[in-house]
Each structure stands twice: as structure tokens, then as C-alpha cells.
Amino acid sequence: MKHPLTEREIRAIVNGREVRARVPVRKSLVDWLREDQGLTGSHVGCEHGVCGACSVVLDGAVVRGCLTLAVQADGARIETIEGATESGRIGRLQEAFYQRAALQCGFCTPGMLLVAAELLARNPNPSRDEIREALSGNLCRCTGYHAIVDAVEAAKSGSR
């Protein structure tokens, strides 16, 4: 990819499956996942990095899908809410979000879940303040956050 081009061939592992595709280089990762891979669980809320609705996991770390280009997924592993759901990796969190009513419209929820999962992987026993800080880049306009913090607390290991 030494010569500048407007379209590129990429190969990526998306939710565990290898995908080959031609992508316009200006297309964002979240647009590509949503429009070309049918993975509409990641949402688009601002396209300038502020809301976190577009969160996806790139090589093991949550990133903004709107601030990453699809072409940059070449050679990478991508996981979206769909993949995380199917693998069962975030099952506890999902159950806790459901039980605790930690969502209303649900537009922020996939992003919240992926960020919360990364927090718990790094810090299995976060305090409420630590949870709030970790989620501070994800906008939820509906819940007021309290229930989300409760749900993450409920899902952390050790608690039941």
C-alpha cells in the first residue's frame, strides 16, 4: 500500500471470520461494518469522536469506529457487538444491563457494553467512580448513567 489510491483491497478477521473486501479508502470503519458487513449493532452518533456509539474492538482494544478508516482494518481483528454477543464474552454484562434496565433507547448500549467489558478485563473490581470514569467517553442521553453504573457493578466478578 505504498502508492496512494482511493480504493484498497483489505483482509480482516471480523467477528472471527476472515473477510476480504475492496473499500473506498475514505470510508470509516463503522460505516463499512454497518453498510458492507451488515453489522448494524454499532451505531453512528456524532462522527467526530465524542459519543462512543460507534465503539468496536480493534485488535483487542475498544476504538471509535468513526475515527478509524476501514482500510486500517487490513490485517486486523475486529469484534463488534454482534461478535461479542455470539461468543458469550459479554453475557454477564448484557444480562445485568437487561435486568437493571441500564438502557432505554439502546442506541448507546453496544458501545457501553464493549467499553465496560474492557474496563472489567483491566480492573475486575472497579469502584463506582472508576466505572464512571471508564464510561466517560460514551454518551447516554436516556438513562442518566446511574443504572449503567449499577449494571457494571453487578456484572463485575465476585459479585453475583
Binding site: 500500500m1 502508492h3 496512494p4 489510491l5
Partner: peptide, 24 residues
């Protein structure tokens, strides 16, 4: 709100990268 058209290059070495910057 979509990025405008551009071309994209992904150099694999520093020299390639700098050559691209020099060129463009």
C-alpha cells in the same frame, strides 16, 4: 458528515513514508 475524497498510502518503512511526504 463524511470525509472528503483522498488517496491513501500505507508505507511499510520510514524511508517510504518520508519519500511520500517529499513527493506530496
Amino acid at each position: 458528515m463524511k470525509a472528503p475524497a483522498f488517496r491513501y498510502a500505507r508505507p511499510e518503512s520510514l524511508d517510504e513514508a518520508i519519500a511520500l511526504l517529499v513527493e506530496h
